[in-house]
Design a protein around this nucleic acid. Structure first.
Lengths: 339, 339
DNA sequence: CTGAAAGCGCTAACAG
DNA sequence: CTGTTAGCGCTTTCAG
């Protein structure tokens, strides 16, 4: 068995209170006493028991991070930044992979996990923000990622996907492309992201006097390369081949480029490709991928700031905030030939 | 405030004991009582407090997963599988990103984190397995990933990197390549992985009667695409250009291919490339990457099995095991032209 | 089958 | 500056 605070107290010949003070540096302790206690701690290899501390304090120092999958480059990068940022604030992070399971997402919010988490950062997939917050365990501070919703008790941190998509498509239009396809619609999901990007896509087309065509809007079941590849193959098999593609994620775009390569379609000459997310793969693909780059560092910082505000507010009475994260279009070889 | 077991007991008109029994299904409870208690639970929205439970049980149901970075495709995929597998065993996972920091790695092992974790799965980076286990807090069950060491109190789960590297290089030799470079040595680290792959590389060369040449062994500081790109550029600037490259990770290989493309080097005709890890990017790169594929699913399952054995063994007296994970060479377009 | 009560390790209010 | 002690919410031994 490992030693407890009491053991240390006994060994140092002081009371538990004093040991606690030394450990937490909470009150002034006589230098001599402090040293004696410290020695006892070292000799016994004493480590405070977090469960006991949490039980008293009502806080665990642990926050949850729920994302669809760790695997994907976008969520991987984001999770990495969030964990670093959490560490900076002395929080430990529990990872929950929802795998796009609606029931699981819902259960996380209702606090079935046994109040281990002081707060939760969740990137919804199957459910809409409203559905999520409706079932939310009221006392659990929540921050929603990549989702925008009007009302709600939770904070929202996201880029303006409509505007960003519009910019991406406008870039293609500016290059003289007219037959612009979209890959990545997800009509079966309610998380809103795909809808918003589709909306921005159509808005840009309409502004240029081009009516959106349903056969150029391709749905996918997930956002992996495989899905992008399949959609691209379908498009190339169609009556009129597109001269540009706007993919709702870099992974989809990379899958699409893969198929284009295999079919001998030259990028960007015959087909210009734009992605979304700015993951590392896109910087090293061939050609490098033009993409919408959300400020991921900012997402991580803001999300944790929101959570901190909520956790440390006495009665969880902080009004719900909606933070829009900066983004910019990075033009690379997949739309404009490299020098 | 949220309700406690006591509140439920009061409301249902029974004792705390009975409520506890209902919640855990531990003892037989009269159907009628059970129902009354269940109603009280639902009405109050009662959730057991994990901190209190842990304090009693001495277990938290949380395990730690420490990896250098979440960001990278290999560790991202592995982490995803490990989290899924942990969930299957009703464990929650805390993620620690060591970022290759030796001090941090050491601190994790000494249990400074406050005994939140019932066990730890760690993929060492800066430290060797022996250094790690030497400082280990004896009572914390530990499983080491991607590392092999003779002695030690912890379990090891890893592929046989020497053999795998040998096979990869032998594949290149079989294709008639003779000027085979290696990218990915890490003389400043002690985690052993790079050394083993270098050893396998040299062994294969020697067997073919080719003396290893130091100028064809390239060191890197990290395993990212950027490092692979830099090393490849250096190699191409050298006196004799290699006709093949064995990279110690897929990321390094992808970075190397990127540079080769930019310089107009044709793959695989002029330069054959083999990676290690079998990450998804390599399946969609252009050309697709030949690579050593470790059975990641197996790594995840075995690692958690080991941890479970150790955690549930009464006195942590399970002898340290070394499990070798299956791997196979996947031949793709980066070494053999696609049909 | 259920109640009463001790105690896990720690913090903090109260006393000295 | 330090000791004593109640109690966080739960499980579990001992009675009944």
């Amino acid at each position: 068995m490992s030693s407890s605070l009491k053991d240390v107290a006994a060994r140092a010949g002081v009371s538990a209170r004093t040991v606690s003070n030394v450990v937490n540096g909470s009150a002034r302790v006589a230098a001599q006493t402090r040293q004696r206690v410290q020695e006892a701690i070292d000799e016994l290899g004493y480590r405070p028991n977090l469960a006991a501390r949490s039980l008293r304090a009502g806080r665990t120092g642990i926050i949850g991070l729920a994302i669809p999958e760790l695997h994907s480059p976008y969520f991987g990068e984001l999770a990495g930044l969030l964990v670093d940022e959490a560490r900076r604030r002395s929080w430990t992070v529990i990872i929950e992979q929802t795998r796009g399971n609606a029931e699981f997402e819902r259960r996380l919010l209702t606090g079935d996990s046994g109040r281990v988490m002081d707060g939760l950062i969740i990137s919804p997939w199957a459910l809409s923000a409203d559905e999520l917050t409706a079932t939310a365990h009221t006392s659990l501070p929540i921050v929603l990622l990549g989702e925008r919703s009007a009302r709600g008790k939770a904070d929202h941190v996201a880029v303006d996907s409509v505007t960003a998509a519009d910019e991406a498509v406008s870039h293609l239009l500016g290059l003289g492309r007219r037959r612009i396809a979209a890959i990545g619609l997800q009509p079966h999901l309610r998380n809103g992201t795909a809808q918003q990007r589709a909306e921005g896509y159509r808005r840009a087309l309409r502004r240029a006097g081009i009516p959106p065509r349903p056969e150029w809007e391709r749905s996918v079941t997930s956002l992996h390369r495989e899905d992008g590849a399949r959609a691209m193959a379908d498009l190339l098999d169609g009556d009129t081949a597109p001269d540009a593609v706007f993919a709702f994620s870099d992974e989809l775009a990379l899958g699409a480029m893969h198929v284009a390569h295999l079919r001998g379609v030259r990028i960007p000459e015959q087909l210009a490709v734009v992605g979304f997310d700015d993951v590392e793969d896109g910087r090293y693909s061939h050609p490098a991928l033009t993409t919408v780059s959300p400020d991921k560092q900012q997402i991580a910082q803001r999300a944790l700031q929101c959570l901190a505000d909520r956790i440390y507010s006495p009665h969880n009475d902080v009004p719900a905030a909606t933070l829009t994260i900066a983004h910019r279009l990075l033009v690379r070889g997949s739309t404009v030939p490299e020098a």
